[in-house]
Design a protein around this nucleic acid. Structure first.
Lengths: 224, 224
DNA sequence: ATTTAGTGTGTCAAATGTACACGGAATACT
DNA sequence: AGTATTCCGTGTACATTTGACACACTAAAT
């Protein structure tokens, strides 16, 4: 494939759409750019692919820097190559989405970011570059994956109620679900185990559940 | 995103997994490399992204060069960035799959290819680079898309019998289907119209069908 | 004319999805 | 302390979809 080594080879970055669930809302991690172009605008966290690094490794590095998590679910979504998507230079980017529990990890602004924080997916600020489209595509893909994999449990805290799980699902797919039907479905998952504890501070005293990590991984492996 | 402009930016290519259906088999277009590395080995057709071109445009260019088709269904699949996937230089590639009717188009070897021909997907020769993996991923994705979109009709000739359509489906997803159930399902598609003609040369004199292109495009647009 | 291969058609059972209402528990209020 | 409020937790009936399955008819081959 001996491509003539063009001098104007594009730079390649990995942009991360990091989803988290906090305050009963699906959120996405955004950073505020400290440098031009799009200085002071919100964008998705990203980083340049190193010369001896895969794009996935780049994405994991960004994730580790921004929220200090490793070994989480990370999914490549798409690659964006419009020549003018970056106003200054040619930059091709590959997007990944990730699922984290934001409770455990406070985002930190590093590198070229002056700020980093969680934003409700239902209400994101305007984003620089083509990052809005990237976010929408990643969210679509997540929604799609959810139909076949019980992925979303990665977003829930260690202990959670079934209502919380339902809220998360509703928030991700953007439409209400029937409580009894939802419960019937997820109670079939064998990785969902009931604890003896109840959530206090909420009426009705709902039971707390947790995930059996081992069974959960098994459940994730087979589909596509 | 001001990435430090590394001097060793990777080249970026688009590799095409071009599926066609001929001789009652699902086939994929492969080319034989004329240059090192992997000279004389079969690989997927691909091309280097031009400096003012999107990756999709690159893929369409390859398609036009190889089989002379335009305006067909083309779907980005994934991006591969392992530093050593190309033994000589750093080359990142983005794969696309496409569906064509091979009857109408004879592949032509151009550029760095000494040969170009269709190969049964069930029995591909060893491929250079990581192209086998790319092929498998693209085939997986196609199979997956088929569950929700009646995409495969793009692969059928102008007039076809329902049995031919079923063979195609079986060949793509790799398992046999029940004739009556298959017919029940696809007869619901409103873009499938019955003609008055029968196919001759085959016993039973099966009816020929055709696609209403307008309704077909409409049917493709809504899912993801 | 007879044989042969492939087409074209309906029903029933099982599984799955969808709609829907109320008693009980913990908290909030006065 | 008692009462009101809010949220939890549960089952059934119906509609839709899926999967299994067999035989008569047509055109070609002999």
């Amino acid at each position: 494939m001996r491509v003539t080594p063009t001098s104007n080879a594009a730079a390649h970055t990995a942009d991360c759409v990091i989803f988290g669930f906090a305050d009963k809302e699906l959120r996405v991690l955004l950073v505020r750019r400290a440098v031009e172009p799009f200085a002071d605008e919100w964008v998705l966290p990203g980083g340049a692919m190193g010369s001896d690094e895969t794009l996935e490794a780049t994405a994991r590095r960004v994730l580790l820097d921004m929220v200090g998590v490793k070994n989480i679910f990370l999914q490549q979504v798409a690659t964006y190559s419009e020549p003018d998507r970056h106003p200054v230079r040619r930059v091709v980017t590959t997007s990944y989405y990730a699922l984290v529990k934001p409770h455990q990890h406070t985002p930190v602004a590093r590198g070229h970011a002056s700020d980093a924080s969680w934003h409700p997916v239902a209400n994101v600020p305007p984003l620089g570059f083509d990052h809005h489209r990237i976010l929408v595509d990643a969210h679509d893909r997540l929604t799609w994956h959810l139909r076949t994999r019980p992925l979303a449990f990665d977003l829930l805290p260690e202990r959670f109620t079934l209502t919380e799980a339902q809220r998360l699902y509703e928030d991700i797919i953007g439409e209400p679900l029937d409580k009894r039907n939802f419960r019937r479905k997820i109670q079939n998952y064998d990785f969902l185990v009931e604890t003896k504890e109840k959530r206090s501070g909420v009426k009705g005293g709902p039971l707390l559940y947790r995930i059996d990590r081992e069974r959960f991984s098994a459940a994730l492996s087979y589909p596509r």
